[in-house]
Simulated scan of single mutants.
Amino acid sequence: MEPVTDQAFAAALYSDGDAGLDTGASLLAAAPAADAELVRRGEEFVRRAWERGWQPADVVRVVRRELDETAAGLAAGLIGSETARYERLPPRWQAQLDGLPDAPPRNRPDRFSYASAVLALYRLLLRLPAIEPVGPPPGTAPHALRLPPAHDEPRMLTRIRALLAKAEATGYPEEAEALTTKAQELMARHSIDEALLAARTHSKKEAPGACRIGVDAPYETAKAILLDAVAAANRCRAVWNSDLGFSTVVGFEPDLDAVELLYTSLLVQGTAAMTKAEAGQRAGGRKRTKAFRQSFLMAYAQRLGSRLAADTARVTAAAEAEHEAGPAGSGAPRLLPVLAARDLAVTDTAERMFPETTTTRVRGATDPDGWTHGTAAADRARMGGGGPELRGGRGKR
C-alpha cells in the first residue's frame, strides 16, 4: 500500500482545482504520523527550486503573489529548515532569509485546513519553471564559481542608507530632494572608487554579478521602468520578467547594492507623493482613478531617468577632472577607459544570461493630471528618464 503522503500527492499535486486538494488534505488530516514526511518532502521541493535558479526571496515573492500570506509563511518555514543544512550560504542569501515572514503554527486552525494550504504550496513549488541563475545554489563548492567576496556592508553604503531613510521620513520636499541627490552622488562616487581600485590592483576575481528585485502589482510597468532607470544610472542592466514579477539586475557588486537601495527608496517616496497628490485632487472635488495613479508613476519613473543619469554624469566628469589633475607619471589607470571596460563587461554578462531579450514600447499615460503631478514629484525627488522602453527576458521554462 502506498504511503499516505504519496496518495495525497497523487490526488492533489498533479491536477488542477480544489477537488484534488480536498482529497489530499483529507488523507493527511487523518494521518498525524505522516507529518514529518510531509515536511521532508516540502524541503525537497524547495531544494529543487534552488537547482532551477530560484533564491529564498524569489520563492516567497511568487508564493505570496500566486497564493496568499499564509502560504508565504509556510514557504518561509520550509526555506528556513532546508537552508539550516548548509555550513555556508551564497552571497545575499542571509539578508534574504532575515527578511522572510514568520512561519504559521503547524496544523492550525485545524489539520484539514493546514494540509490543504501545504498541498497548494507544494503544487506551486512543483511547477516553478527554471530561471536564469544569479548565483550558485547552496552547497556548491566556492572555488567552482566566481563568488563576490563576503564582507560587512561598506561604510559608504551605510551612509547612503541613512540618507535615503531620512529622505523617506521627512515631510519637506526640498529636504528629501537634497538628501536623495546626495545619496545618488555618493553612489556614483563609490562606484568610481571601486572601479579604480580594481583596475589599480589588476583584480581578476571581480566580475559582474546579478540580483533579482521584485516588481509587484499594481502598476508594475511603471515600477519596472523606474527600476530600469535606476539601474542604468548606476551602470547596471535590468531585465524585467513580467510573468514572474521581478527584474534581474546585472552589474558589479557595489552597483547592485546601490540600485537596490535607491529603487526601494524612490518607490517609497513616489508612492507617498502619489497618495498626497490624489488626496489633494479629491479635496478639490475631482475623483481620481487607476489612470491617475498609473500616469503619475509613469511620469515619475520617466522623469527620474534623465535626472539620475545627469547626476551620475556630473560626478563622473568631476572625478575624471580630479583624476587627470593628479601627479603626472603616477601610473594610475585612466578613469573613462576603466568605466567603459566595466560597462562592456556588464553588457556581455547580461547578453549571455538573456540571449532572447525583447524591447517593448509601453503604452502612454492617459491622465494629464497624473502625469503633471508625477513629473513634479520626480523633480522634488531630484530624478527623471527618456522615452520608456523595457527589456524583458524570456525565462527558462
Rank of each mutant, 00 (worst) to 15 (best):
E322A: 12
G53P: 00
G209C: 10
L124Q: 03
V259Q: 15
G386A: 10
A11P: 08
K223Y: 12
A207Q: 13
L164Q: 09
R61I: 00
D367Y: 02
D379Q: 08
V134I: 04
N107V: 00
A34S: 13
I131Q: 07
E320T: 07
R64Y: 03
S15G: 13
P368R: 06
R41P: 09
R64K: 08
A328P: 15
R65P: 02
V268Q: 11
R307Q: 07
F296P: 11
K223D: 12
L196H: 11
A313Y: 07
G326R: 02
Y114W: 06
R65G: 09
P129G: 14
E194F: 04
L196W: 04
N234W: 02
R189F: 07
R286Y: 11
V346Q: 02
D216R: 13
A34Y: 01
A378D: 02
R92C: 01
A381S: 12
G326E: 04
S265E: 10
E69M: 00
A376C: 03
R391N: 02
T158Y: 11
D243S: 15
A25W: 03
W371G: 14
K396W: 00
P173C: 07
V60T: 09
G99P: 09
T170V: 10
I192Q: 14
G24D: 05
A183I: 06
K205M: 10
A233T: 14
E175K: 14
R48Q: 11
N241S: 15
V118F: 01
T181C: 08
T170I: 07
D216V: 09
A29K: 05
A318G: 15
A115F: 01
Y263N: 15
P138L: 01
H373D: 15
T375A: 09
T70W: 03
V39F: 09
D58S: 13
G364A: 11
L164Y: 08
A231H: 15
F112C: 04
H323F: 00
D369Y: 08
A378E: 00
R307V: 03
D152W: 07
L163G: 11
S203M: 07
D193I: 04
D68F: 01
L145G: 12
L121R: 12
D379F: 05
R88P: 00
R303N: 10
V338I: 07
L97H: 08
A11F: 06
D367C: 14
A279E: 10
Y14C: 01
S15N: 14
L89W: 01
G305F: 01
A29G: 05
D22R: 05
R394N: 10
L163N: 11
K223E: 11
A299E: 13
E260M: 11
T170G: 12
W371E: 15
L164D: 06
V4H: 12
R146C: 08
A238P: 09
L196Y: 13
L196E: 12
A340S: 10
G209I: 01
A210M: 09
A19Q: 12
L163A: 13
A30K: 05
R394D: 12
